[in-house]
Design a protein around this nucleic acid. Structure first.
Length: 542
RNA sequence: UGGGGUAUAGCCAAGUGGUAAGGCAUCGGGUUUUGAUCUCGACAUUCCCAGGUUCGAAUCCUGGUACCUCUGCCA
């Protein structure tokens, strides 16, 4: 169910009330110059669900008007990511580059209407002539060329007779406008680079502002939804459509970009992290790229749920990552089988169990979902617990195993710590405990810990991911490298129940009391797991 | 005396003149062989500030303040 309490739904609802025949058509228009991230997921969620709810259409359009930046590999990866999120675009995939002929035609229309001219000012001069926030701009000396002259030059530009930057086509609007975007914006420029799709066919390419509104109009988009920084561009969007002979006039609406605490999504910054070898690739599991999140173990469902929860507004926000994490946990809790893994093993000898004895115990794979079945585990004289569940000092923390005190072994019974065996350097070698086979259901105020018998283990490597940054808002940091968390990956070696092999059709497990882990590989008789996310912790005295 | 936006709890976010939804976080109670889950409860006398209109204002008016954004031939 989609949360419809937001301003965009209200706008659409009103439009439908006014015009019952209206067809709701939206689009998701990424530039194929990088991988999609969680921010794109929000946009995808809005556009696809909005049109779906009103039985309209949502197109996927690659906004590929700049051959310098775009690559075929991103076109493929983006499609993959959208499909993974569970969305299907309407009709065939659209490309801005499919409309290059049309943009060109409309540019000529503007020239013929004396609303566009070829400027020979260079980049620096254009910038200078544009003026500032407080001062108006100055008209280019090339602003009043004849239509004929403009037509000839534009044709020559198209035919590749000029160098990059030598001239460009500008819309003739208003050099004094308070909207700087309207101070004769460049709408066509020369690019010598070969376009990944149209190859060498074109020497000139439309800018975003010129192309975007026209492609929206061609596709009869009803609601063109983008992020806040394009608010000013809307004026140009409307100006262009008002001045060319195109019937359909889509309306643009802006919402605020998604920011999440402790994360970045900027392509520039991700590239910097790769360059400095903080991470390897775009799909690093610590990144909020969709490919990274997928690798980490995030599910598409949890991401969609998150997008639904956070809402849509025009306020700048920095959403607490715990909202995302909670969406993931909620799902994984229901879907993953439980298993016991000891991450920091500490050996325990149960002195009153015979060395050769094997006790079989049947336990459930999920505390509530009986359909997940049961498995057998083994109890024997030597077991491992996690060193974190042992406390080498007197305390009242009954969740820990302490000298002379008891603790519950999950599903097995109770043990009492009798001796701590140390080497000459006082390092703990192992613990000696006494085992009590009692029903532990009614005993209160004793902690429950997980454990594994030595006769029931497979070695395993565990990788833990933590936040990549030490600051809550890394976007505000000038030098992203100065706030890198040195412990964003931690590797440990421990044990997992052998029974994991019998339920290995799963890829994601909950290791009891440790979190959700994703299976990576089995090599040299050793398993390898990545932790997706911890369990929620609730230490009252910590 | 540039323009365009936005201000509701620690973080998001509904609310459109009739007396502040919901989620996350946090804090308590209960259930539980995971300090998990589940469940119940608490959490804005007040909506950026100051005035005004009104029987009644987060909503309307006036005047301030803070933050975001725009001076690419990027998108």
């Amino acid at each position: 169910m989609i949360n419809k309490k937001n301003f965009i739904y209200n706008i659409v609802l009103n439009d439908i009330k006014k015009n019952k025949k209206i067809k709701i058509i939206t689009r998701f228009p990424p530039e194929p110059n990088g991988n999609l991230h969680i921010g794109h997921a929000k946009s995808i969620f809005i556009n696809f669900n909005l049109s779906k709810f009103y039985k309209g259409k949502c197109f996927l359009r690659f906004d590929d008007t700049n051959p310098n930046k775009e690559k075929k590999k991103y076109v493929k990866q983006i499609q993959k990511d959208i499909k993974w999120l569970g969305y299907k675009w309407s009709e065939n995939i659209k490309y801005s580059s499919d409309y290059f002929n049309l943009y060109y035609k409309y540019a000529i229309e503007l020239i013929n209407k004396k609303l566009a001219y070829i400027d020979e000012l260079n980049k620096k001069e254009i910038k200078k002539f544009r003026g500032t926030f407080k001062n108006p701009g100055i008209k280019s000396p090339f602003r009043n060329r004849t239509i004929k002259e403009n037509l000839i030059l534009f044709e020559k530009m198209k035919n590749g007779l000029y160098k990059e930057g030598e001239m460009c086509l500008r819309a003739k609007i208003d050099m004094k406008s308070k909207y700087i975007i309207l101070r004769d914006p460049v709408i066509y420029r020369i690019k010598k680079k070969i376009h990944y799709k149209t190859k060498k066919k074109w020497n000139i390419y439309p800018t975003y502002d010129f192309a975007h509104c026209i492609s929206d109009a061609i596709e009869k988009i009803s609601h063109s939804i983008c992020t806040l920084e394009f608010s000013d561009n809307r004026k140009l969007y409307e100006w262009i459509l008002n001045n060319i002979s195109i019937k359909h006039h889509p309306k643009q609406y802006e919402f605020s970009k998604l920011n999440i605490t402790y994360t970045i999504t900027s392509k520039r910054k991700i590239k910097k992290l790769i360059k400095n070898k903080i991470i390897n690739k775009w799909n690093d599991p610590r990144l909020m790229t969709l490919s990274g999140m997928k690798k980490r173990g995030y599910t598409a469902k949890s991401i969609n749920k998150f997008c639904n929860k956070i809402g849509i507004s025009k306020q700048n926000s920095n959403i607490d990552i715990s909202i995302l994490e909670e969406c993931l946990r909620k799902e994984l809790n229901k879907t993953t089988p439980r298993i016991m893994a000891v991450i920091n093993p500490l050996k325990i000898i149960l002195t009153n169990i015979d060395e050769k004895k094997i006790i079989n115990i049947k336990i459930p794979n999920h505390p509530k979902n009986k359909k997940m079945g049961k498995r057998n585990i083994i109890l024997s004289s030597i077991i491992y617990i996690d060193i974190k569940d042992f406390e080498n000092e007197n305390s009242n923390n009954f969740h820990k195993l302490r000298l002379g005190k008891k603790i519950k072994l999950k599903y097995a019974g109770i043990i009492k710590l009798k001796n701590i065996i140390k080497d000459i350097n006082l390092n703990i070698l192992y613990l000696k405990c006494k085992y009590y086979n009692i029903k532990i259901k009614k005993i209160k105020n004793i902690g429950i810990i997980h454990w594994i018998s030595k006769k029931n283990i497979i070695k395993s490597k565990f990788r833990f991911f933590n936040k990549l940054f030490t600051k809550k808002n890394p976007n505000k940091e000038k030098n992203i490298l100065s706030i890198i968390n040195p412990k964003s990956i931690i590797i440990k070696n421990g044990y997992i129940e052998k029974q994991i092999k019998n339920i290995k059709k799963h890829k994601i497990y909950q290791f009891e009391r440790e979190g959700y882990f994703k299976f990576k590989k089995y090599k040299n008789k050793k398993l390898s797991f990545d932790r997706i996310i911890s369990l929620k912790k609730n230490y009252k005295n910590n």
